[in-house]
């Protein structure tokens, strides 16, 4: 980050809007597109990511003085993978259906660029307390993009919201909304709206 070290709550806040990992830095797009056709799955995914980010930022930050610089990437990946395994086991035990539907995407949190980006870009150089806040911020920033997209895609595509019937039963299901292409369009539109908003903000 060019603005110098950001500490405490400010580290959390900037992730929500100014440096939002999905909109601003275009990271973590894979899961942002793949899980957003059902609100329930999206929520689970977001919680999983927030947990992973928080814990791995904290752990990496604790270990930051011990990790040799040459092997730091692989150690970060291993730390992340360990927490993702925890999530996978919890999901398998308590929410096996969702775990099945999410399929590989839970495991893919490991290669989600947001997590690597935060551990490498922030946690490696900052105190554990700040690193946790930064991680939570990035996770919430991610959720702020995914949840609205899911809330649009699920009702339009299936007529339901969180698995419950939302629109009248004679609603013609807009199948395109739950399959791949609409994910791309929805995210593009979201980026468009946010950037237009930011541009307007800059002019004032």
């Amino acid at each position: 980050m060019s603005a110098g070290p950001v500490k405490g709550v400010a580290a959390l806040k900037r992730m929500l809007w100014e440096e939002n990992p999905v909109i601003g830095q275009i990271l973590g797009i894979c899961s942002a597109l793949a899980v957003t056709n059902l609100v329930k799955n999206t929520l689970v995914m977001c919680l999983g990511l927030i947990f992973t980010l928080m814990m791995s930022c904290f752990t990496v930050s604790l270990l930051r003085n011990v990790i040799p610089r040459q092997v730091r990437m692989i150690i970060q990946v291993l730390v992340i993978a360990a927490y993702v395994i925890v999530i996978k086991i919890i999901l398998d035990a308590y929410l096996p259906e969702i775990s099945n539907e999410l399929g590989p995407y839970v495991g893919l949190i490991i290669t989600n660029c947001i997590v690597m980006g935060r551990t490498e870009g922030y946690a490696m150089n900052n105190k554990p307390g700040d690193a946790i806040l930064d991680g939570i911020g990035a996770g919430i920033g991610y959720s702020l993009v995914l949840l609205p997209i899911a809330m649009i895609r699920e009702p339009l595509g299936l007529g339901t919201f969180f698995g419950m019937q939302l629109l009248p039963p004679d609603w013609t299901k807009w199948n395109m909304m739950v399959i791949a292409p609409s994910g791309f369009f929805a995210l593009a539109t979201y980026i468009w709206i946010v950037r237009a908003f930011k541009a307007g903000e800059g002019k004032r």
């Binding site: 275009i26 894979c30 597109l33 793949a34 893919l108 660029c113 994910g183």
Partner: peptide, 8 residues
């Protein structure tokens, strides 16, 4: 295009 992997 269908599984959205490798987007970054």
């Amino acid at each position: 295009l269908t599984n959205f992997l490798g987007m970054c």
